[in-house]
């Protein structure tokens, strides 16, 4: 049986306009056979969750370089829990100081991809997670 392609939301949360990484990752995921929905800039946690549910995605990839991750990313996870969307995994890319990575993971972030990560690492991380789930 052919697997249905994974659906991924790539979102720019917060106000920063640095979308180079988000767009490169979005294209790499699409090239790897996933269906990608890219939100564009300046998304609030509410908008991210709403789009993720509407689009029925399995993965949310959030890009943020402004330093507002501490407030904004746990808010996304909190809302997902409220919606009982336990199947959606959240991964994060951008400038995230090392000491914040633990905090984000404690809040339920599945993976954090710092500068220098490859698109290949991100693709295989996602594939691996969904292989395990089956």
């Amino acid at each position: 049986m052919a697997d249905k392609p994974l659906r991924v939301l790539v979102g720019k949360i917060g106000l920063d306009g640095h979308d180079r990484g988000a767009k490169v990752v979005a294209q790499a995921l699409r090239d790897a056979g996933m269906e990608v929905i890219y939100t564009g800039l300046r998304q609030t946690p509410e908008q991210i969750v709403e789009t993720a549910l509407q689009e029925d995605v399995q993965v949310i990839g959030l890009s943020i370089l402004s330093g507002a991750h501490i407030q904004l990313i746990p808010a996304v996870l909190e809302m997902l829990r409220e919606q009982e969307s336990h199947d959606i995994i959240v991964i994060v890319g951008g400038i995230i100081p090392k000491e914040d990575i633990g905090y984000l993971k404690e809040n339920g972030v599945a993976g954090v991809f710092s500068p220098g990560s490859t698109t290949e690492q991100i693709v295989s991380f996602i594939k691996q997670r969904f292989k395990e789930k089956k």
Binding site: G14, L15, D16, R42, T44, S66, G67, A68, I70, Q71
Partner: peptide
Amino acid sequence: DLPTQIGYDSDHPLARGEVGKV
């Protein structure tokens, strides 16, 4: 900071987490 660059005061809801950051 980003709220200033996008024309929001620091007490605007969209400024959450961004005040004084970049």
